[in-house]
Amino acid sequence: MKKIYYPLIALALCMSSCKNVLDIEDLNSLDEAKVWADPNLVNGYLANLYPLFGNWNSGADGNSEQLIGIAFPLDAVTVNNGSYKSWDYTTIRKINTAIQKVNESTSLKDDFKKTVIGQALFMRAFMYFNMVRIHGGVPYITVPQDLKNDDLNVPRNSTKECFDLIVKDLDQAISQLPKTIAKGTADYGKIDGDFAAAFKAKVL
Rank of each mutant, 00 (worst) to 15 (best):
1 M>C: 10
53 F>Q: 09
55 N>M: 13
85 K>G: 11
153 N>A: 13
5 Y>K: 12
193 G>R: 01
67 L>M: 03
14 C>G: 15
95 I>V: 15
27 L>E: 09
89 Y>R: 14
50 Y>R: 13
152 L>P: 12
176 Q>W: 11
97 T>V: 10
6 Y>D: 05
158 S>R: 11
162 C>S: 10
129 F>P: 02
174 I>R: 07
10 A>C: 07
78 T>Y: 11
198 A>F: 14
67 L>S: 07
192 D>Y: 03
95 I>P: 05
182 A>W: 08
204 L>K: 13
111 D>M: 10
25 E>R: 09
16 S>Q: 02
93 R>I: 04
127 M>H: 00
166 I>M: 10
137 G>H: 05
88 D>R: 00
52 L>S: 06
134 I>C: 02
89 Y>V: 04
191 I>S: 06
37 A>R: 04
49 L>T: 00
2 K>D: 09
137 G>P: 01
79 V>H: 06
25 E>T: 15
25 E>N: 06
86 S>W: 02
115 T>M: 13
3 K>M: 09
46 L>F: 06
2 K>P: 01
161 E>I: 09
167 V>M: 02
149 N>L: 14
31 D>P: 00
45 Y>A: 04
178 P>G: 03
8 L>H: 01
17 S>E: 08
61 D>Q: 14
128 Y>D: 04
103 N>L: 13
71 A>P: 00
150 D>Y: 00
201 A>I: 08
84 Y>N: 15
186 A>H: 07
50 Y>I: 01
108 L>V: 05
119 Q>A: 07
16 S>I: 02
60 A>E: 12
104 E>T: 06
192 D>H: 10
97 T>I: 05
159 T>L: 03
167 V>Q: 11
100 Q>A: 04
194 D>E: 12
153 N>Q: 10
93 R>Q: 15
31 D>L: 03
126 F>L: 02
28 N>V: 00
17 S>R: 08
97 T>Y: 12
41 L>M: 11
193 G>S: 00
45 Y>F: 03
22 L>Y: 05
70 I>K: 08
105 S>K: 00
50 Y>V: 02
180 T>W: 06
42 V>T: 00
23 D>G: 07
32 E>W: 00
67 L>T: 14
157 N>Y: 09
201 A>F: 15
6 Y>Q: 05
101 K>G: 02
7 P>F: 03
127 M>T: 01
156 R>Q: 13
21 V>R: 12
125 A>C: 03
157 N>W: 06
87 W>R: 15
126 F>W: 13
110 D>R: 01
103 N>T: 14
198 A>V: 05
137 G>Q: 08
157 N>S: 13
166 I>P: 15
169 D>L: 02
43 N>P: 03
158 S>E: 11
41 L>A: 08
105 S>G: 13
164 D>M: 10
50 Y>A: 01
12 A>W: 05
23 D>A: 10
33 A>Q: 12
130 N>R: 04
127 M>I: 00
75 D>M: 01
47 A>L: 00
160 K>E: 15
77 V>C: 04
164 D>F: 03
117 I>R: 11
110 D>Q: 12
146 D>L: 14
26 D>L: 05
